[in-house]
Design a protein around this nucleic acid. Structure first.
Lengths: 189, 189
DNA sequence: GGGTAGTGTTCGTCAAGGCGAACAAATGAC
DNA sequence: GTCATTTGTTCGCCTTGACGAACACTACCC
């Protein structure tokens, strides 16, 4: 069968765009980033122009300098904040058993989602500094009550409620009742 | 200033191991894979030996030939069934607020996780046919009680308990109390 | 105006990666 | 046993990526 010629080209332009966005988000000049990464700025310039065929060392140096996970090199754009209340969302029901599954969020290609269980008590709200660019958080409240979301526009959640929001900006988790619990998925890639 | 010298090296040996495992899993000889990927077998040989500094084109060609997502190049092995009870797991606590986050599962590179909310009632258990190979499910029980996991070895869960198990084999979700709820993450790629 | 300190670009040089042939080592057919 | 065939390795040649200087350009200060 021999699929000898493989015409698939590496997504150079995606990588170029990712690098440029990453660099600008970090507030670095091309010269500065090249210096930190230990590569020539000419190399970086060509890369951001979507030209060439960079070596692993070059890509890796840029990733570490930008504090980007390597797998983040080829990625898409952004999402926004969204709430699905406990009684909302389109559910998939089972024909045989009394079972309802509601799709809260399909995972975007290439993304990674770490899963956390959160236990919080009323008092000082927990405010998080912005994570790396592109990070999105998902919260499903399982018990209690909480104010969750972007620091400047949080959402009140009751048990069963779900919210997703960009986490590359300041965000907050404030328990409103004792023994508040949630599942938190941090999506970052 | 000037973090000029960046001593961090690309994980060449991880990539080498991944490539070798991928190739052997596909049942390909070094010659055959090199031919399919359109690269010289000498190049591939050196790569699997953990030497050199491959170019993006080379790595990309190998990924497409092996049908591996690019981000999967530097990855560890596989998971199995695991339970983290409500009071278990190592938590990250906040210095200021009464907030505890427990990492349940870090997402493997290249994987995708769809998030579902499940509502189930006692009665006939819901049994699922095996999903595509490599699929893993994560369940965090939020209310009620349930028997969850591989059909031949399910686990009893109480609120706050977490379980993960391979879903490319028959598995079950059986509510043991009315108004049983859970978050289900389906990890499949 | 000139001078300076930034920006990101283009160019010539050099080292290094990729290629293909030649190689050794293991296996199977006869 | 010999002859094939396939395995993965090593080697010389050539292409090419990375480097660094020189470049054009802008902004700001004096």
């Amino acid at each position: 069968m021999a699929s000898a010629g493989n015409p698939s080209k590496p997504p150079l332009h995606s990588i170029a765009a990712t690098l440029r966005r990453g660099r600008q988000a970090a507030g670095l000049s091309l010269t500065e980033l090249a210096h930190r990464a230990g590569i020539a700025k000419s190399t970086l310039s060509q890369l951001e122009a979507g030209q060439g065929n960079p070596s692993l060392e070059t890509l890796w140096a840029l990733c570490t300098a930008l504090d980007l996970p390597f797998s983040r090199l080829l990625d898409p754009p952004r999402p926004r904040i969204q709430v699905i209340r406990a009684d909302q969302g389109q559910a998939v029901t089972s024909a045989w058993a009394d079972y309802r599954a509601t799709l809260l969020s399909a995972c975007p290609p290439g993304a990674r989602r770490d899963l956390y269980r959160v236990d919080a008590e009323p008092g000082t709200p927990r405010t998080s500094a912005p994570h790396t660019p592109g990070t999105v958080e998902h919260v499903l409240l399982t018990a209690g009550r909480a104010l969750v979301g972007p620091a400047d526009d949080p959402v009140e959640l009751n048990p069963g409620d779900y919210v997703t929001y960009p986490a590359d900006q300041p965000h907050v988790f404030e328990a409103r009742e004792p023994a508040t619990r949630a599942l938190l998925a941090s999506e970052y890639s």
